[in-house]
Write a protein that binds this DNA or RNA. Structure first.
Lengths: 315, 315
DNA sequence: CGACCACATGAAATCGATTACAAAAACCTG
DNA sequence: CAGGTTTTTGTAATCGATTTCATGTGGTCG
């Protein structure tokens, strides 16, 4: 059955009918054991519940299925995430890893398992250029976001930052600072508030801004969910967006266009990230691509102007 | 290693050191082959990108991981979904199925594979009571939603319905009709508009309502996303919620509380659905529960009153 | 007609964990 | 210390697909 061309016509047909009669199905466990490959890829993401990641996962599953691979998802990893992930390979449950979680010690991951398990990472700020990666132009996109606010006449600009990893500062924060510097705008420490990409942290950021002596006239949020949390809490306290403050988000999740006000944001090509990362990984697994030179794909984000940003009154 | 108690203390230690020295890891493929079980469960859902399902999936992964199971997700199924799913079992890739997709021919599924593959379903309107299921009280919850609108003084009430399956009418629609009947309210056909649970269909529903000769004063949407799409499009056309029309949703997805207006909705216990369904399935797989009597868990939904519903002016 | 080649088929080894069973060692007890 | 029991250890078969190698066809050509 695995090589029908090597068998005579007659035998081939006899096999066919036998398959139908007995209802034969290939036993994947046996095949995995013999071939030492599972035809399965593992995905690690920090919270599948997050709409950003779930869209990516959707694309991953679609592509993987089309190419005959199963998709395993892993949840919160325990004490030793690297060990946890690499065990999937050593135990022959998965052939490759799609890593969407930047909060792992990638250095250690690469050292421990990088050579033994094929992986494609899709998150910002990769410490190790040897890892195959599909990323977006976070830094530039952040600059573009600030540029947009600047173009609208805003000079007092705040930021809700995403979490920084170990030693690496958050790329969007870096882009924010860079743009502010280039426009010779003052960066007030109290206008940069740390968040964790959840709506709740957007709510909290709003509380913080409300407590400031002076509020910025525009705020760049490192993702849409925090922007939404921010706008909602501000509104509950009488501060309207975009009347009193302009807000720009990041990602363009599906609610953003139906939010009130519709959210101005930097759109990230989520399907594309998932799709390309998966294609790349499977190509590597099937030897289409030589594993010597790491793949590095950079995708472009796009400014989507909607209602949540408005020209500074009197500018 | 599988039964350390049957071996002498000395040998146990010798094994331990050998494991550490050689870096031995159990080969799951070999174990699967021998034991005829994969320690993996398969989940089928209609669109992982949907925030409703992704929250459930999150819970599934958490529970499964804790109990030592992997989670495979499957995407859009082809021509023969039932065959597709049952192949996962016949090929020994998964031990059980968590079915969150009500759009399958469950009758056929059960006939084809029900006896050979353990499954727990978590969606409404189960045609076959023999299937293990974890569901919510959709009908009652829909009635409760209408009741809330009624209590607010609304009498002209519309509905955005979810899709109906084959022969079975949508349960929330049935609940809507039932409540309307019991309150002796008129059900206008043009006020019941079909949707597919996406925001876009909420947008479309809004267009529809705007074209009606007379608009209802309150609308019950079969899920939050459609409610959000509805409110957004209405607002763009000068119809404000809740000033001009009250809207109640269903599910309580995470944006709902940060939407403007914050959405009144029937909260579904999503984590609980995922958690209990997974626990149930694994219990069945491990023989804790006799597979003779089907499990049927019904969870309660809860009314969450926020800003999107208001008393009828002049009532 | 024998030598040779292409092709088709059959048999056996392999992947690694589990399990049943046999063999051997250790332990009692009278 | 013999006879019997218990514990421990070793051996071999099994799961199902793949792959290698040997055997067996048929056909061609010198």
């Amino acid at each position: 059955m695995s090589s029908p061309e090597r068998v005579s016509e007659a035998t081939r047909e006899r096999v066919q009918t036998a398959v139908l009669e007995t209802g034969y199905t290939l036993n994947q466990a046996a095949r995995s054991l013999r071939l030492q490959k599972a035809k399965t890829i593992l995905t690690a993401m920090p919270g599948i519940g997050n709409p950003f990641y779930s869209t990516i996962l959707d694309a991953v599953v679609t592509v993987a299925t089309r190419r005959g691979y199963g998709v395993l998802v892993t949840g919160r990893l325990g004490d030793d995430p690297v060990r946890w992930l690499s065990d999937y390979f050593r135990s022959n449950r998965a052939d490759g890893l799609l890593l969407f979680d930047g909060f792992l010690d990638t250095r250690k991951l690469h050292r421990t398992a990088g050579d033994e398990m094929p992986l494609v990472a899709a998150y910002d700020e990769l410490p190790d250029p040897r890892i195959n990666s599909v990323i977006t132009d976070n830094l530039q996109a952040a600059e573009r976001a600030v540029q947009h606010l600047f173009d609208m006449g805003h000079r007092k600009i705040g930021h809700i930052a995403g979490p920084s990893r170990n030693t690496f500062p958050n790329e969007r924060l870096v882009g924010f600072r860079k743009a502010m510097f280039e426009h010779r705008l003052e960066v007030r420490d109290e206008w940069i508030v740390p968040g964790d990409y959840t709506m709740q942290s957007g709510n909290a950021a709003a509380e913080h801004f409300l407590r400031c002596r002076e509020m910025p006239t525009a705020i760049f949020s490192a993702n849409d969910e925090m922007a939404i949390g921010l706008i909602a809490t501000l509104r509950r306290n009488g501060v309207e967006c975009p009347r009193d403050v302009s807000v720009i988000g990041f990602d363009d999740i599906s609610v953003s266009q139906n939010y009130a006000p519709a959210l101005t944001t930097m759109r990230q090509p989520r399907e594309e990230i998932g799709r390309i990362a998966t294609e790349t990984l499977i190509n590597i697994l099937e030897g289409t691509r030589a594993p010597t030179d790491p793949v590095r794909v950079v995708l472009k984000s796009e400014l989507v102007v909607r209602e949540s940003t408005a020209p500074l009154p009197g500018a």
